[in-house]
């Protein structure tokens, strides 16, 4: 048993998993409230990475220090992606409320293709290098070969934002209204919850987290292109399903589970089939335990 290799895989999986969890939260929140798989969520993450890259490059040319650039770029990405998420919901999903389940899903696929091609046309279809903005921390030096500072920042930022989200959902009035809407939208509306507003806020929150994930992973990996959102989106969706779709702690757990198992599978089995592994896990889970780790089985009433 090679312990160092094991630790390396574990920490790599942790980094990956926290990003999946950040994106998966957006899926799970939207699904919880309007029962829609927001296919375009992965594209929001990609837009976050692109906005971050553009802002970071402009600031870099203006001569800002890297740490400030990182924070400003992440903020810009969050603000813009929240805007994109909000607008997307108003255009493509809101007019379709109450129109069955197939129409919004196809509309979401259309939105996802739209955003990909928007980037191709307005920016480029090539891979762009992303500047490495995360500073090296001296206290991580002894373990830097297995757990670099970018891994540290990713795990830390995502844990903090997930904790903040949990507090928001659990202890604020808005969070309570969100939970009520997820449980029963009509009843919540009767009790004076503005469901449209709650849905908008859900999209804002989910998109901001995805944007944060986009900037973090792009500066960790060092590359972005228009297609990164598709794979990341599907994997994050897998994470959401693993944890039980609709459940926020489930999405976090599912993200970590997927990240770790993917990391171990590529480390010990084969790296060629890295993506096949995630898809297989998704298929197997949907077939045998569609309610996921934390979800409750749904009983259908006729």
């Amino acid at each position: 048993m090679d312990w160092q290799y094991l630790a390396e895989l574990f920490l790599g999986g942790l980094t990956r998993g926290s990003i999946y969890a950040l994106i998966a939260i957006g899926y799970t929140m939207v699904y919880g409230i309007i029962e829609l798989i927001n296919f375009a969520h992965g594209e929001i993450y990609m837009l976050g990475a692109f906005t971050g890259l553009i802002v970071a490059s402009v600031l870099g040319i203006l001569g800002f220090p890297p740490a400030q650039i990182l924070i400003l770029a992440a903020l810009a990405a969050i603000i813009y992606c929240a805007g994109y998420g909000y607008t997307m919901e108003k255009i493509a999903y809101k007019p379709l409320r109450g129109a069955g389940r197939l129409s919004p899903l196809i509309s979401a696929i259309g939105m996802s293709l739209f955003l990909q091609n928007y980037i191709i046309l307005a920016q480029t279809s090539d891979f762009l290098p992303f500047p490495s903005l995360i500073p090296e921390f001296a206290f991580l030096d002894p373990v830097a070969h297995i757990f670099g500072s970018s891994n540290f920042v990713i795990v830390l930022t995502s844990s903090v934002s997930m904790a903040a989200l949990t507090v928001f959902i659990k202890y604020t009035k808005m969070g309570k209204a969100m939970r009520a809407t997820a449980q029963n939208r009509k009843m919540a509306m009767l009790l004076g919850v503005n469901a449209d507003k709650i849905i908008s806020i859900t999209f804002l929150l989910g998109s901001s987290l995805a944007a944060l994930g986009g900037v973090l992973i792009a500066s960790h990996v060092g590359m972005v292109n228009f297609a990164v959102g598709f794979l990341a989106g599907i994997k994050a969706f897998t994470a959401a399903v693993l944890g039980g779709i609709g459940s926020i702690p489930g999405a976090m757990l599912g993200g970590l589970f997927l990240g770790l198992s993917e990391s171990f599978a590529t480390g010990y089995i084969s790296s060629d089939y890295e993506d096949v592994f995630a898809f297989t896990l998704l298929v197997v889970f949907l077939i045998f335990r569609p309610s996921g780790i934390m979800g409750k089985a749904k009983v259908e009433k006729v």
């Binding site: 998704l282 298929v283 077939i287």
Partner: peptide, 24 residues
């Protein structure tokens, strides 16, 4: 395997299957 699934879950599984075939 997907007999029990419907709607959006089915969509995702078939998408996953399509990607698995391509990756293989």
């Amino acid at each position: 395997p997907v007999l029990r699934l419907r709607g959006d879950y089915l969509a995702i599984v078939t998408l996953g299957f399509g990607e698995i075939v391509r990756l293989v």
